[in-house]
């Protein structure tokens, strides 16, 4: 699964052992399979549709954010603002469909606008990230730190830090609805994963992202419009965050600008890292990120369902990242 694209012509170092390439290619998938086998043996009521349902619905928002993060990381950057952008979209949407800003003639119009405007706004803030980073050559970790801090403040100012509670099935469809028995947020997740994977592997845009991440100067010299591509990538990350923010509030029937998306940036980066994508950019796989997120989710589920306390869960999560880094080093050396 962990297929990586290398646009720059460089010789991949040969690996001495036979196990090496197999591990780096299928290691995360094997880890996921092992986890599932472990749960089948140990966890009560594991082999049920409900388990699949719970895990997929819980992981959906992290995967959606992590897909955006994968593209950013592929371009050699990082996006710390994703959680705050989730909060901005989450705080704004209910104000729209509850007619707190302007009164819409019909509920459906309000709900439709509540889907579009907050996500676009999050995308615009993402674009702002990209503009800071390209126009002023701010390092991505610093450039996105600005909205990581300010973004939550902006979200809080929408609602005066109050939690907005609602019961609007038309809007909450994206968090609670189902198509042919499949939760809507899972469908959204799959669509975004497939779309991003296709963009990264098959389109010029995708190749250009990887080229920039691999060697920015070389990409610039070969005619890639580096600044524009980067701005787009951060905007996409913003859009993904906006969608995730809406799903979270739809699921909870409440928008709490203080808490929505808190710590998500780290979950998303962890998913990318566990999936096996190098944080230095130039190589990336969206499917690997999906597997990475599923592993983290399943570990959390396993520990929780078996009564292991939270503190231990955090340590195990860190252990997984170390394992992923170790696997990557095997490829690099």
């Amino acid at each position: 699964m962990a297929v990586s694209d290398r646009p720059t012509a460089g010789a991949v170092p040969a690996i001495a052992t036979e196990l090496g390439p197999w591990l780096s290619r299928y290691g995360t998938l094997a880890a996921l399979a092992l986890l599932i086998l472990f749960n089948l043996a140990v966890t009560r009521n594991f082999a049920t549709w409900q388990t699949l349902n719970i895990n997929l619905t819980q992981v959906a928002t992290i995967v959606i954010v992590a897909v955006g993060m994968t593209l950013v990381i592929a371009s050699g950057g990082i996006d710390l603002s994703v959680g705050s952008l989730m909060a901005i979209a989450a705080a704004l949407a209910p104000l729209i469909f509850l007619n707190r800003i302007v009164t819409f003639p019909s509920l459906y119009l309000g709900v439709a606008i509540a889907f579009v405007v907050p996500v676009l706004l999050a995308g615009l803030f993402g674009l702002f990230n990209g503009w800071l980073i390209t126009r002023y050559r701010v390092q991505p970790i610093v450039g996105t730190l600005i909205l990581f801090i300010a973004g939550r403040g902006i979200a809080q100012s929408f609602t005066d830090s109050n939690q907005v509670i609602f019961s609007t099935p038309e809007f909450q469809f994206i968090g609670l609805g189902r198509f042919f028995g499949i939760p809507v947020q899972v469908i959204i997740m799959v669509v975004i994963v497939v779309l991003a994977a296709w963009v990264l592997r098959r389109t010029v845009f995708g190749k250009q992202i990887l080229a920039i991440g691999g060697n920015e100067a070389a990409a610039r010299l070969s005619g890639v419009r580096v600044d524009r591509i980067k701005q787009l990538v951060y905007a996409i990350s913003g859009l993904c965050s906006g969608i995730a923010g809406l799903i979270v509030i739809a699921r909870n029937s409440a928008a709490d600008s203080n808490l929505v998306g808190l710590g998500v940036e780290l979950d998303a980066i962890a998913a990318v890292a566990v999936g096996g994508t190098l944080l230095t950019g130039g190589r990336a796989s969206v499917f690997a990120t999906l597997i990475g997120a599923l592993i983290i989710q399943l570990v959390r589920f396993t520990l929780l369902a078996n009564g292991v306390p939270d503190a231990a869960a955090l340590v195990v999560k860190a252990g997984l990242i170390i394992l992923a880094v170790w696997l990557q080093r095997r490829v690099a050396t």
Partner: peptide
């Protein structure tokens, strides 16, 4: 999320 998981177990 915690309740979803614990209720399943």
């Amino acid at each position: 999320q915690v309740m979803e998981t614990l209720l399943q177990a």
